[in-house]
């Protein structure tokens, strides 16, 4: 069928415009079907579906009974959601700053032509290979006030020492942060190290000739040169932060009380635990909005930048 169609088209070409080129490069198009389906049905379709349904009052089952922004109003007046967003904000800001600083510091140290570079790099990066569940459970154990860090420091003679982040709702999010940093900094270190290795050796020689100190060279010359690497790292950390879920589930299950809830957990719990679909859809749409805000500068740099070249 396809072949005959094609033959006929060929014959007509002299006086008609070339018809649909769907059969040209056919194998390639067939091979691209999974990619096209993923991009359209899943990424666009499913996200769109959820956004549309976030304006309905779906409860147990999704239905198209539109109620405007009701779900969003309810969402932003829910204490649990507000705590989730606040936690995400604190966690995100600290995680961003510390990951960038520690990641860059470690990379810079490793780049100082030291011995055992591979050993150190292996040590800093191995947590990244682990599951968030594993990370959360280990740190849950280390931060356990009865047996962990607190009891050891007390055992050393400092009886009033208190460090129980996982049982204190005011600082629980920092307990999660310690675990998150442990897992995530190695990746950023690796990216930074690749960036540092890409910097021309002559820059270092030039600053040496000019008598600029090492630290100043990093701050004034190297870091500005590594702007694209920092942007990549920033986007990577930020999009990871919004998705934080398993770490919290494993380490605190959102507790004590609801003090370490995060948006991703709110979505899961409302969708599958409390079966309040409309709320879950509204909350996940808000998560998408957060990511879009983060992504705008990145997309601008990546795609807007290319046009200039």
């Amino acid at each position: 069928m396809a072949v005959t169609d094609h033959g006929v088209d060929h014959a007509r070409r002299e006086y008609a415009k070339p018809p649909i080129k769907i059969f040209k490069n056919l194998s390639s198009k067939i091979a691209a079907i999974p990619m096209i389906l993923t991009a359209t049905v899943i990424f666009i379709g499913c996200s769109g579906w959820t956004i549309v349904h976030s304006f309905t009052n779906s409860k147990l089952l999704p239905k198209l009974d539109f109620v405007g922004f009701d779900q969003y109003e309810r969402l932003w007046s829910s204490r649990r959601w507000l705590i989730s967003v606040e936690n995400l904000f604190i966690y995100g800001l600290c995680s961003l700053v510390f990951t960038l600083v520690i990641g860059f510091l470690l990379a810079a140290l490793l780049d100082r032509k030291i011995r055992f570079e591979n050993t150190f790099r292996t040590i800093f990066l191995y947590p990244f290979a682990l599951s968030f569940v594993v990370t959360g459970l280990v740190w849950q154990w280390i931060l356990n006030p009865e047996f962990g860090v607190q009891s050891i420091v007390r055992g050393l003679g400092w009886e009033s020492f208190t460090f129980d982040p996982l049982y204190n709702s005011d600082i629980v999010i920092y307990g999660i942060l310690i675990a998150g940093l442990w897992q995530g900094t190695g990746l950023i270190m690796c990216i930074m190290l690749a960036g540092l290795r890409g910097i021309d050796e002559d820059i270092w020689k030039a600053t040496k000739v000019d008598g600029i100190g090492t630290v100043k060279t990093y701050l004034v010359v190297i870091i500005p040169m590594m702007k694209p690497v920092f942007v990549t790292a920033l986007v990577l950390i930020a999009s990871g932060i919004v998705k934080v879920y398993d770490l919290v589930v494993a380490q605190t299950s959102g507790g004590p009380g609801i003090s370490s809830e995060v948006p991703a957990k709110y979505v899961y719990d409302t969708l599958f635990g409390r079966q309040n679909l409309g709320q879950g859809f509204a909350a996940s749409t808000m998560m998408l909005v957060m990511v879009v805000i983060i992504l705008i500068p990145y997309v601008y740099l990546q795609f807007g930048g290319k046009k200039d070249q």
Binding site: M35, I51, V235, L288
Partner: peptide, 16 residues
């Protein structure tokens, strides 16, 4: 689209 999709939070696609 596929690359940008990698940044979409999974939560929004879970239920569909």
């Amino acid at each position: 689209i596929l690359l940008l999709g990698a940044f979409i939070p999974y939560q929004i696609m879970l239920y569909p």
